[in-house]
């Protein structure tokens, strides 16, 4: 298995991650009014989308480190574009990337199969949950709300996250940019 990084992979991932960052910024503004309307449990549904910053680069390249690199680029772009969540994003990005990296590194290494993706998504979601508890005081919300949040977030991370990752990768593959990448070889 050749796990050395190529310039092409790095730059393409950076570009893709930057776009994801922009989409997040737009989403932050779009969903902001909604989140105060519908409450956090509903908004947790979008968590799968936010997980994309770590899962997409990793799924495309399948080499160690890309989840972290992608997530950090996304977070910095998100920050530099003036997202409401500021420096928090870098923390969240790092955390979910760490989860994702573990998911791909431990079992069935870097194959990009269901096991990798699910473990990565669950670990990523849990890592970010840790941050939310500390910074946003989620634990003080009461047991019912909290459990709701955890369940919805996990489902969203696994189902929506995976569907989006696969869908987007398939779309990209069709345009031929990903030729020579691992995701296009199987």
């Amino acid at each position: 298995m050749n796990l050395k990084w190529k310039t092409k992979e790095v730059v393409i991932v950076a570009m893709v991650a930057a776009v994801v960052g922009v989409v997040y910024t737009i989403m932050d503004y779009l969903y902001m009014p909604l989140s105060s309307l519908l409450g956090p449990v509903f908004m947790e549904l979008t968590f799968g989308i936010y997980l994309l910053s770590a899962s997409l680069p990793m799924y495309i390249v399948r080499k160690p480190g890309f989840a972290l690199f992608g997530a950090l680029v996304t977070a910095f772009v998100n920050l530099l574009m003036g997202s409401a969540y500021g420096i928090q994003l870098i923390l969240a990005g790092t955390l979910q990337a760490v989860g994702m990296e573990i998911g791909y590194a431990v079992y069935k290494r870097y194959e990009g199969n269901m096991v990798n993706m699910t473990v990565g998504a669950v670990l990523g979601a849990l890592c970010v949950l840790g941050r939310d508890c500390v910074v946003f005081g989620y634990l003080t919300l009461g047991a019912a709300t909290f459990t709701g949040i955890v369940i919805v977030r996990l489902i969203s991370a696994v189902v929506i996250g995976m569907l989006l990752t696969k869908g987007i990768t398939a779309g990209l593959k069709k345009t031929g940019v990903l030729r020579g990448f691992k995701c296009a070889q199987v």
Binding site: K8, V16, V19, L172, V177
Partner: peptide, 8 residues
């Protein structure tokens, strides 16, 4: 994303 990747 496609155009970003191409540009990349």
């Amino acid at each position: 994303l496609c155009s970003a990747a191409r540009r990349g």
